[in-house]
Design a protein around this nucleic acid. Structure first.
Lengths: 253, 253
DNA sequence: TTGTAAACGTGCAAAAACGAGCATAAAAAT
DNA sequence: ATTTTTATGCTCGTTTTTGCACGTTTACAA
């Protein structure tokens, strides 16, 4: 029996029982405990399980969170932006939220506020689920692979039934000429739909997005009422954005 | 038996009974009282329970994790049921899923299988999000407070647009006379709707639900094709269920 | 309030598990 | 065929965990 074969069996046992015992594995696979320990070490290094004394437990099944990696970038700035945006959010507002890590920071800071949230991002909904203060409406739709956003005609139809006080958008690019943009058409479409249903449009983005243009265009700057970003934004760009009639809020850090 | 295994069983007992006795645990786990006391100390430090003289009670700060605590009750049985149900799930099937911890166990075991899942539970959707093998459709709707289920006319309308191969239901009670039942009307309504859209109905429930009747009735036993449960079910009850034309699958533990 | 029995905590010794190093055996490369 | 690499099992010293003993504290009832 080769190593990979053992790895497979160990993972199988782990999936079946949740907890494995070193002695049992040694007997089951007919190898020494030393080998089992080395195997468990390897598997732990791959993040497939968590070692304990005497065996191992299933790793907290956050196997592939494509968001965790992104969250690391500018996380300080995102947190500050989240707090600033949440602070300015009026109680009782009906808010439409796209997905995205910056929007998630705002949602986290909104905990406990009496608001209504309409969203097509299930991670936003999950975050608010334990809090009775917020009423949460999920649009429904098809879950985009490796994302947490719902898209398609179901999402569109549901969103069309709501009037929003504020559309809260996270974007990948914000530019004077080209306006708001993001990486995928589906996200751009959802963002544009939120804007069309909303009284006011707030954009949250760290300063690295300012001046950038991503492939999928959403809308011109003129449609945006407020941008919440961090103090790292270029002052000249900020002036031009304000000259375009956009309120720019700099989060305190 | 390793320490983590004891921890899990202690949490399970706690979730089942709400209060545990040190002597009972010592007898059940076949370790000394000193070890039990040390275990309880550890678990208290993790905030998973509250120590008392002679044992421990469930921690009351369940605001943050309304789900984790529930998961502990019969977690071994639920995992076994999840594996058994997932194994019997045909590739490519279109499955409708309610929420509930037992259904979540099945969904976790379905990782990597090529299936289509229609669900009104956002935690189910979150679990499947990283896996490209599954196509996930979320019904949308209003998020029930402190739960992860979407309800209301949006959920109904979306669900009505789908034909399901299998309705996968988690219930709180399954009884010969009264049929399937659950704790809230909203959940019962959702479950009944899944049933009406599905070719076949599978119910997953640990043996503690067998013979019980919860307040909100869903449907009679005759509408169910298959029950996946654990070997702890009363043999007489099992016979009567099978006599009623229901296939009963006992998960291997 | 006071007595009593059960439970608690601490110190200590035994047992189990761990990590590191080394020798052997198998596999791969030369 | 021989060398190099890799994998496995074993030993030994160290760390962690467990069980027991004993004095102290707590809960319950008279």
């Amino acid at each position: 029996m080769i190593k990979e074969e053992r790895f497979e069996l160990i993972r199988g046992e782990l999936a079946k029982k949740g907890i494995v015992d070193g002695d049992e594995l040694a007997a089951l696979l007919d190898v020494s405990r030393a080998t089992i320990r080395r195997d468990l070490d390897s598997l732990e290094e791959q993040g497939l399980l968590k070692r304990t004394h005497g065996g191992a437990t299933a790793a907290d099944s956050e196997d592939e969170l494509p968001f965790h990696s992104k969250l690391a970038a500018y996380s300080r700035e995102k947190r500050a932006i989240g707090n600033a945006a949440a602070e300015r959010m009026p109680s009782g507002a009906v808010i439409g939220c796209t997905g995205g890590t910056t929007v998630m920071s705002v949602v986290k800071a909104l905990k406990g506020k009496p608001i209504t949230v309409v969203t097509n991002a299930i991670n936003v909904a999950m975050e608010l689920a334990p809090w009775e203060s917020a009423q949460v409406i999920v649009t429904g739709g098809t879950l985009r692979a490796r994302s947490y956003e719902l898209v398609g005609h179901i999402a569109d139809r549901t969103l069309g039934e709501f009037h929003l006080d504020i559309a809260l958008l996270g974007v990948d690019g914000i530019d004077i000429e080209r306006g708001l943009s993001t990486y995928t058409i589906a996200e751009a479409h959802a963002a544009a739909h939120y804007m069309s249903q909303a009284e006011r449009v707030w954009v949250v983005a760290d300063h690295s997005k300012a001046g950038k243009v991503a492939p999928a265009l959403i809308a011109p700057i003129s449609k945006v009422h407020c941008l919440v970003t961090d103090p790292g934004i270029d002052p000249g760009l900020r002036s031009r954005l304000e000259a375009a009639g956009l309120e720019v809020v700099l989060a305190e850090m």
